[in-house]
């Protein structure tokens, strides 16, 4: 149920768009109104979410320290895992963002035990899968920029050339398409495994199916239901310059692709995909380990009821006298 429902939701959306365009000629709805609507809502939602995060304060200084602190000068401290400088924090956060350092951390005792054999650990697999997925997603997004920019910057063209370097077929297969398909299949199938299945929610499958749908429609568009790339670009430039126009030459698959991307965009602010922004704000990662060097202020701090020394001395006066402990009063 947790898996089937999201699958049908995504296929349903794709089917509605496909039929809508193919049979009822609803290009206007799915090609223009839907993207605009989704984009605006997503933008508002995204900003609102960031503001809500940023508006809630960080009352306490709670970095998770993963290395030797800076204390005595002759002890070598860990600059990144226990950062005391802004640069250290920057490296730490960038390490998380670019290389998923914490996921990589699964330092296994592979060589221990009598046999001293190497054992493949599933979590390194997760690290590889996640890294491949995110990096190639970036490549694909950058490649798509050629449809959004005029003139197309030369580095995008080089990137595209590099990506399609193995031109064995016509049109060439993009390396990124291959790897992102593989990695998303991995990310999906690992959720079917027992332990991860237990913790997975329909939303987790929904996103994977949605991304899968986008990738699939994109690949289909490139290799089977070919569309004229110039038409596509003209259409997108029309959207960007607020002069939207329906282009007849674009097949239904294009609208499916565009529609699914729009839905994804709309969904971002309401989903775990916000981790793309949240990772920068995580207080266990973006704070320095300097809480004894510099006072951290809690903006909502309030006075609390304490047991003062005077009250305490009054209560235990006799006992203190008996013990010969000096009194204040």
């Amino acid at each position: 149920m947790k898996i089937i429902l999201p699958f049908f939701a995504v296929s349903g959306i794709a089917a509605v768009i496909y039929i809508g365009v193919k049979v009822y000629n609803l290009q206007l709805v799915f090609g223009i109104i839907l993207p605009y609507l989704c984009f605006i809502l997503a933008l508002v939602g995204f900003i609102a979410r960031i503001i809500r995060w940023a508006a809630s304060p960080v009352p306490f200084h709670i970095p998770t320290v993963c290395g030797q602190q800076r204390s005595l000068p002759w002890i070598r401290s860990s600059k990144i895992d226990s950062p005391v400088t802004g640069l250290g924090v920057l490296f730490r956060v960038l390490g998380e963002v670019l290389f998923f350092r914490s996921l990589f951390r699964n330092d296994r005792a592979n060589l221990y035990g009598e046999q001293k054999r190497i054992i493949y650990s599933s979590d390194k697999l997760l690290w590889v899968g996640a890294l491949l997925f995110h990096w190639f997603l970036l490549v694909i997004i950058l490649r798509h920029l050629r449809l959004f920019l005029e003139p197309v910057p030369s580095w995008i063209i080089s990137l595209q050339g590099l990506d399609g370097i193995f031109e064995t077929t016509m049109p060439g297969v993009y390396i990124s398409n291959v790897f992102i398909s593989l990695s998303i299949l991995y990310l999906l199938f690992r959720r079917f495994r027992s332990r991860i299945r237990y913790i997975s929610l329909p939303a987790d499958y929904f996103i994977l199916f949605l991304l899968g749908g986008i990738i699939l429609s994109g690949i289909l568009m490139r290799h089977i239901y070919r569309i004229d790339i110039l038409d596509a670009k003209a259409f997108i430039m029309g959207l960007i310059y607020l002069k939207p126009m329906v282009h007849e030459g674009l097949g239904a698959m294009f609208y499916v692709h565009l529609g699914l991307v729009s839905i994804l965009t709309l969904y971002i602010p309401h989903s775990k995909l916000m981790h793309m922004a949240g990772v920068f704000l995580s207080p266990t990662r973006n704070l320095k380990n300097n809480s004894r060097m510099k006072r951290h202020i809690n903006p909502w701090d309030y006075p609390v009821k304490v047991h003062t020394y005077e009250e305490w001395e009054d209560e235990f006066k006799d006992a203190l006298k008996e013990a010969g402990i000096p009194l204040d009063r």
């Binding site: 979410r49 304060p57 009352p59 997760l126 995580s282 207080p283």
Partner: peptide
């Protein structure tokens, strides 16, 4: 508490349930 703690709000929103913490 959501209003007072970014950690709480953030940690409620961004978990992707990757399972790295599970074991």
């Amino acid at each position: 508490l959501l209003k007072k703690n970014r950690s709480f709000r953030l940690f409620m929103d961004i978990c992707v349930r990757c399972g790295a913490c599970a074991d």
